[in-house]
Design a protein around this nucleic acid. Structure first.
Lengths: 179, 179
DNA sequence: GAAAATTATTTTAGGCCTGAAATAATTTTG
DNA sequence: CAAAATTATTTCAGGCCTAAAATAATTTTC
């Protein structure tokens, strides 16, 4: 793998593999992805506050419970939402106070707290979810169906790449602990 | 635009345009993008904490200041980072306490606070930025160069779409205020 | 079967973040 | 030029979020 002198390098030869240590493309990609996510999140937060006087963490938590008919434990919810257990406990406290969620210890294993939406919670979520879906569609209106499919596919590959890299790092750390 | 009876609909005819009110594809796209962003953010936060005992908001703020030789105002930083002014004030307070950032009122307009990295701040940032870039490259290692370029392009279109939809909404609200 | 280890959740201390109100400085306007 | 409006920043109250420690219940192990 040779690195030609800068002056002689043709544009189409300027590949990452030929510029050891340079990863500006990946960095720009990440910053652009972060911009998109932040724009969407901020807009959805604003609309949830304006139209429903609620917050995104509450909406996200209710969305998880809505998908499960039998209820979910605190741990399951925290895994799905990729937040800490303590955070779930805190957000649930607010939803309990508003009567939107029910929490009860499981009968077999009393360590486990099972969370379910109340009737009021299901009703409130249904109304929000419908609006939420249309907001998202509005935000992505500038992409046609093939572009959406292609972006979805590339983000799928990204997700796989991330899981692999993160797991590799975790393994290294675990090895380090033993030595 | 007709909607065929469900039983007769061929798979390749199941387009969003033929299912009025259905925007599940956009929703799935958004959730996948959010998963990717969250995975990257969480991993970068962990590594910044472990290797540099610092946080992502501090790193991001220092990155903005590092790009500007003449310094930036609180308002400029808050716009670039897409966070509130008050948040910049608070994060800067920590960086000031650590001697990484300098803050002084502009001579002409004493409302304006100009922020710059100190020598120690520039040095600390340089070390972190180098590691940060390689972490990002590691995380995206599963994508080849054309995939990165294509994803970058599609996210560019997404960004445009988002700006347009958000501006449209803001205009509606402004119209509503006048009436 | 009791001590030890594991598992699920909550609590705690502390940082991030926001919108709205307050403060302070500048610019505009009558 | 002084009052009013605007602009930049800070303060404040409150919610989100985390890691680490504490608590509580269950399972494993000897």
């Amino acid at each position: 793998m040779e690195t030609p002198a800068p002056g002689l390098m043709l544009d189409r030869e300027t590949k990452a593999s030929e510029r050891p240590g340079d990863h500006k493309d990946e960095l720009r990609l990440w910053l652009r992805m972060l911009t998109c996510s932040t724009l969407i999140e901020t807009e959805i937060r604003n609309r949830l506050r304006e139209e429903f006087k609620t917050t995104l963490p509450r909406f996200d938590l209710m969305a998880q419970l809505d998908k499960s008919s039998t209820g979910m434990t605190v741990g399951e919810v925290s895994q799905r939402l990729m937040v800490s257990n303590g955070n779930v406990t805190a957000v649930v406290a607010g939803l309990l106070a508003d009567g939107l969620v029910d929490k009860r210890a499981a009968t077999q294993d009393r360590r486990v707290q099972v969370l379910t939406l109340t009737a009021a919670g299901r009703k409130a979520f249904k109304a929000m979810a419908e609006r939420h879906e249309s907001w998202i569609a509005e935000l992505f209106a500038g992409l046609d169906q093939p572009e959406i499919a292609q972006l979805f596919r590339l983000l799928g590959q990204t997700k796989t790449s991330l899981h692999r890299a993160i797991a590799a790092r975790a393994n290294e750390a675990a090895q380090g602990d033993v030595r």
